[in-house]
């Protein structure tokens, strides 16, 4: 905090010190106010990371499961054998990080804010499939993508956190 810093110039009158402090109070209040506007860069970056880790984790898991070549039933040993596959293990690690980042995100923003925004992952999957796997995308899929994008923009323009830290107990 700037207000707590020792002022290097000695010999200030108490009135001057007072105005110096007030100036910093006003500035820090202004900074707080600017932090309240809809969504900050930090939150956006974490949302992006959550989307990427979820998509990559699911992709790796699905790829691994498809190449293991045995169907896992209710046999617990089967699950352990499957987890020895590098793609499956990698997918699980990515999903563990996804879970931790999503928890952090939930401490920063509303659940009803995060849900629609992280659904941008569906759009990402469609676009990646079109660009890299040369999948044909039906017109209804493009419409769906546009709807998700529009909905995300709409939700993204609302206040990201509407409850205080103790908001739930109100």
């Amino acid at each position: 905090m700037a207000g707590n810093r020792q002022h290097p110039v000695s010999g200030l009158t108490s009135l001057q010190t007072q105005s110096y402090r007030t100036h910093h109070l006003v500035r820090s209040a202004r900074e707080t106010a600017s932090r309240v506007v809809p969504v900050n860069l930090k939150t956006l970056l974490l949302i992006l990371a959550v989307i990427v880790f979820n998509s990559a984790g699911n992709l790796s898991l699905a790829y691994g499961m498809r190449h293991v070549g045995e169907s896992v039933g209710l046999d617990p040993l089967g699950y352990i054998r499957v987890m020895l596959n590098p793609a499956v293990a990698g997918g699980i690690v990515l999903l563990i990080f996804w879970l931790l980042m999503r928890m952090t995100l939930l401490s920063w923003a509303d659940l009803s804010f995060i849900l629609p925004l992280t659904s941008l992952g569906y759009v990402l999957a469609a676009v990646l499939g079109y660009v890299f796997l040369h999948e044909t995308v039906a017109p209804s899929h493009w419409i769906g993508t546009c709807l998700i994008f529009a909905g995300t923009m709409l939700v993204g323009s609302t206040q990201s956190k509407t409850t205080g830290c103790s908001g739930v107990s109100r």
Partner: peptide, 13 residues
């Protein structure tokens, strides 16, 4: 409204 748009999009996709 945004949430409903996203829901519609997911169903279409």
């Amino acid at each position: 409204a945004g949430t409903l748009l996203v829901l519609g999009g997911v169903i279409l996709l």
